[in-house]
Nucleic acid binder design. Sequence first.
DNA 1: AATGAATGAGCGTTCATTCAT
DNA 2: TATGAATGAACGCTCATTCAT
Lengths: 217, 217, 217, 217
Amino acid sequence: MRELQLQVRPGTAAFSKGQQRVLKILQSARDLMIAGGYHNLTMRKVAAEAGISVGNLSYYYPNKEHLLRDLLDQVIESYMWEFDKIKEEAGVGPEQQFVAIIRFIIDDLGTQETTNFFPELWALSNHDSHAAERMDALYIKARLVLNELIEVLNPSLNEPEREQLALFISASMEGLTPFAGFNKPWESKRDNIANIAAISFLNLVKTIRNEDIDQLR
Amino acid sequence: MRELQLQVRPGTAAFSKGQQRVLKILQSARDLMIAGGYHNLTMRKVAAEAGISVGNLSYYYPNKEHLLRDLLDQVIESYMWEFDKIKEEAGVGPEQQFVAIIRFIIDDLGTQETTNFFPELWALSNHDSHAAERMDALYIKARLVLNELIEVLNPSLNEPEREQLALFISASMEGLTPFAGFNKPWESKRDNIANIAAISFLNLVKTIRNEDIDQLR
Amino acid sequence: MRELQLQVRPGTAAFSKGQQRVLKILQSARDLMIAGGYHNLTMRKVAAEAGISVGNLSYYYPNKEHLLRDLLDQVIESYMWEFDKIKEEAGVGPEQQFVAIIRFIIDDLGTQETTNFFPELWALSNHDSHAAERMDALYIKARLVLNELIEVLNPSLNEPEREQLALFISASMEGLTPFAGFNKPWESKRDNIANIAAISFLNLVKTIRNEDIDQLR
Amino acid sequence: MRELQLQVRPGTAAFSKGQQRVLKILQSARDLMIAGGYHNLTMRKVAAEAGISVGNLSYYYPNKEHLLRDLLDQVIESYMWEFDKIKEEAGVGPEQQFVAIIRFIIDDLGTQETTNFFPELWALSNHDSHAAERMDALYIKARLVLNELIEVLNPSLNEPEREQLALFISASMEGLTPFAGFNKPWESKRDNIANIAAISFLNLVKTIRNEDIDQLR
DNA sequence: AATGAATGAGCGTTCATTCAT
DNA sequence: TATGAATGAACGCTCATTCAT
């Protein structure tokens, strides 16, 4: 896991104590965001949640934008780290590995953190370019794993085609979040839906032909 | 299209002038929400956008919650109305109709309104039960159209299976919004992605067997 | 009971219907004042309570001050009317009549209206000259009844002495309101306190000598 | 004088500077209340009077209710402190002491503060339970002084009788406020009225018999 | 590294009042 | 007479931010 480049005020968080503080701040911010959305993320509440004063918070983060960036970066980084782990996980064959990834992602979207954090991120990315940029980086990484497996499963596809396929598969799974995520109406059917997803995506990857993608409408 | 039940203060918007005002208010609110997210939706800004005073705005809407409800209801209603239209649209056969719907929905997610409004709705629904409720109602309607076609395309599926299939397909398309929507990185590939979606979903519906869905993991 | 000179807009409340409206308005205002104090008396609430529009309320009362005046006048007038009745009530002798009045007043201060209305009036009179003026007129009338009986009970007192005695007696009883009035801590002892008051005031009136009042300190 | 437990936001007014500010705030609030009644007591006006910003005011007082409580507590505490002083004041004998207290209280009600503050408190206590509670505590203390002297002046009375007597006497004096207080019609006769009160109350206490109080009507 | 103190703008909401119809 | 519509100021309160210590 690469070291996060914190957006804290320069000269700050130099020693262990300060670094601990920053971690506590970011965790508090994350908790507030998950519990009440970006709407609920205020400097005062973050400070209170972290058990420090507003003044002290702004010693580390001179303004809200910097804090938000670090918050997004940190959370996104943790998801990226999970994608790194996925790759390392031994799978007997490419098909089993592919299905395992599908299952892993759809499982994960059932956690409260994922269910609540990502819609905020998507909404944020519509009005905040940094959020958009970081979100983009995250999903590029997510698709990379899929891309490599697609290449093995269907060698006839070229790179752009693989990318578009990965995009479709990744976005499809993300789309399940507001419907089958934590506390959502279809939560109890998430496993069934994961079955559908797995069989559908695997079949898609193995059978699709170049002309299916680039056909004119 | 059924008449919207406005949440305005009783006795208000009784005549044409007031109704026009409420319409203008709702349109202003919608515009602000799309342009800057829920975060940007304040009573003052809505009033300014609608060209009226804050006092006058709260003459119609006693509080922000009522305004938000009407805003959500109105936008959601307009999407529901589109789904009604889809059904009426003559399609030569069930396959063509099915593909047409896929294409219609993915096309629509490329509009600025859809791209920006829905992530706000999903985020909102995590913390606002009314938003969750209305969102649910909208997607139930969206899936109904799919459901009916699935029944024709694959008569061997039972009702719960069809519903889960429709949920997967609908959610998958929604998931494309933050990636291939208006001004999004994959905007230019939206048509290709629609091709993938169409072929994938059609194949899924036609070939899936009961045991594929309910299999134990 | 003399006709109240209403402070309504000239030309208004000319006919029976309008007069009924004004009565309803004043009663609504009185109810609000008693229920929530002057603090709770707003034009909007009065209009709502009276079942009319704000616009219509201001047709009768061009501003809040006029309404307040009529409200005070009306309530005060009703108390004045009671004092007129007291005098007419046959009492066998002056002592019994005197005691009856004491009892009547202390009984009355146990009603919710009296308990809640008068402290508002006293507070108002500190900052509103019209309230002060009307309040003065009311208590002049109240003391008049006492004054006449004092003259009979103790003929040796001159007019100023009688007035000061009446003032003391009247004010003493008023002072019981916040302590032994409706829902107040000593409510259940009101009768006992009335006994004390009666015996104390009667003895005072009968035994006080001129020099007791005007003595230098 | 016991230390007041301030209702300020925790962590606030920890040092001298903050404590001075809170004192200034409370004094400003008191001044506004006396000058214009509770109706005139707004957070903005208090802030302006204290020479600080609204934000800074609400840094100390999270809401108006807390400020009002501290205001009432502070003023009431200062009166309580006076009652403590009264007791300590050496008086030659119980009669002289009793009369001195009567005179002291009636004198005090001639100050602008007392004349204007108490009616507001009585009115407030009808709609605010904390105000009612604090007011009750104040008068309990006021009656205690009277109670002890009554016991000496008339040993034949039992405790409940003494309490009712003290209540009657205390309330009677309070009742003079709106009539003989600061700037009131009978202001110039306050001394005469105090004479009447003194002679009347003393006579009452010395001559009343148990059966006078508890007699059935 | 941390605090208490402070500001000024903005929030959602209510107010008394006005006015055309 | 009566209404719906409208304003502009003020309400209590929270915000991001700044700063001296």
